[in-house]
Design a protein around this nucleic acid. Structure first.
Length: 426
RNA sequence: GGAGAGGUGUCCGAGUGGUCGAAGGAGCACGAUUGGAAAUCGUGUAGACGUGAAAGCGUCUCGAGGGUUCGAAUCCCUCUCUCUCCGCCA
């Protein structure tokens, strides 16, 4: 959420930013409601000021035994007026907030304008696409040959779009999670958290998934909770409604968490393999930082993500998303795409965003810079560090060999008991 | 699922209708004291919104929302969250 006062006083900036993001928002109505809300607020406050003054007089009169009944009668009608006015005011406030909740974060000046993915900028590439003297296989064929999955059995449990890992496949998944967590904790200085997968509505509003993405999430109707759509939600919201004490920033947290997505409307797209699934593992990175440092921290965050791909020897490119391709809450975002030689395409394996104070304001997270200082709103950032199934897939596809075996990158070997390759057991 | 107890400021904690935005304490800041520190003493220390160049002024806020009342942290209703005990269960 943007600051209401900012919205009112910088209408031109807001309109320009929303246009850049390509979001449809009824701004005219918002401004109209705000105007009415403020004038009603003024009137109501004036009436209340009168009431408060009279109440004091009445209290004083009663104390000294004087008769205050005339004054009380007068206040009775004024009280009714106040009540009516406040009812109007509540309605206006509700409508104003409802509209404001749909106003997206505005793009940072360094973000290239654009309407869709075709206008994203490649800022950097790392590694070389491997050259094979054979036709590289897609990960689903490799996985099937190596016995890493039971593709055909998974739907029995949860329907299509879910994965069952088997044997070494399950172990590789676990190894990747441990490897990434250790890497971020030991080498990047993050603190590991383990968080709930079931999320309250307020938290999803806090990080900006609600109200927009309600239909994309699994909803537990009985309790009005949602299955975690991305670990960014629980890991960021652990601090909601808090005032962070001086000296606590920057906060850098990491967590493993499964992510659940209905991906409504996506049925039929990328149905093979593990590129698009309803449940996937992810290691998440979240930072909460002082506002003036957030763009430096954003670059460092991107570096932390890159280190994972490099350790796994996966060729990747970094995209600076254009204004129209960013999520609702983001002010600036890098996507990391890894080359998948079997599929012959790039796969998005991480997204690295700076939300500035947009999420923090929504979740009522504040910070005191130093003792006695005014409260400020810190900035929040997050990145996947990284998403597993696609990384798993590109790992297989990049490190495959002619005989169908897959080399395990050195960094991962300790997590697989020293194993250097995946090979089908005879 | 059943029964009960609670949600007050950065934190702890008092407060059952009228100068209560809220006692007291902790913490923190500043000052005194000290060679320096600890201890001690003194002073100060909420947030949101509105208005204003600013000082200030106004309104609101004691989990949330309604109600009663001239007036609610205090009374009533609903919701929500936390805790304890019992039941069930990994």
């Amino acid at each position: 959420m943007l600051d209401l006062r900012f919205l009112r006083t910088h209408r031109d900036k807001v309109e320009a930013g929303i246009a850049l993001k390509g979001t449809q928002v009824d701004l005219a109505r918002f401004y109209q409601i705000e105007e009415r809300r403020l004038s009603t607020l003024h009137e109501s406050e004036q009436l209340k000021a009168r009431r408060n003054a009279a109440s004091e007089e009445i209290a004083a009169a009663k104390k000294s035994g004087a008769d205050a009944s005339a004054r009380i009668d007068e206040m009775r009608t004024l009280g009714d007026q106040v009540k009516a006015m406040d009812a109007d005011l509540r309605q206006l406030e509700e409508e104003s907030l409802e509209l404001a909740a749909w106003i997206p974060n505005l793009p940072h000046p360094s973000v290239p304008p654009g309407s869709d993915a075709s206008q994203n900028q490649t800022v950097r590439t790392w590694g070389e696409a491997p050259k094979f003297d054979f036709a590289p296989k897609a990960h689903w064929d490799l996985a099937t040959d190596l016995g890493l999955f039971a593709f055909e059995r998974a739907p029995r449990i949860a329907g299509s779009g879910f994965l069952v890992f088997t044997g070494l496949g399950a172990r590789l998944e676990r190894a990747l999670i441990s490897f990434m967590l250790d890497f971020h904790v030991d080498r990047h200085g993050y603190t590991e958290l383990s968080v709930p997968h079931v999320i309250r509505r307020a938290c999803l509003f806090g990080t900006g998934q609600l109200p927009k993405l309600e239909g994309d999430m699994y909803h537990i109707g009985e309790d009005d909770r949602f299955l975690n759509p991305t670990a960014e939600v629980p890991v960021t919201n652990v601090y909601r409604d808090e005032v962070l004490e001086p000296g606590t920033l920057p906060i850098r947290n990491t967590a493993y968490c499964a992510s659940y997505r209905r991906e409504a409307g996506a049925a039929g797209r990328d149905t093979r393999g593990m590129v698009r699934v309803h449940q996937f593992d992810k290691v998440e990175l979240v930072k909460i930082v002082a506002p003036e440092t957030s763009y430096d921290e954003h670059e460092k965050l991107a570096r932390d993500v890159a280190d994972i791909f490099e350790a796994l020897e996966l060729p990747y490119r970094v995209l600076l998303l254009c204004s129209g391709d960013m999520s609702f809450a983001a002010a600036k975002c890098y996507d990391f795409e890894v080359w998948a030689p079997g599929l012959g395409t790039w796969l998005e394996c991480s997204s690295c965003s700076n939300f500035e104070d947009f999420q923090a304001r929504r979740m009522n997270l504040r910070w005191r810079r130093e003792a006695g200082a005014k409260l400020e709103i810190p900035h929040t950032l997050n990145a996947s560090g990284v998403a597993l199934p696609r990384t798993f897939a590109t790992l297989l596809e990049n490190h495959q060999r002619a005989d169908g075996s897959v080399a395990i990158p050195k960094a991962l070997q300790p997590y697989l008991g020293g194993m250097t390759e995946l090979r089908r057991k005879e």
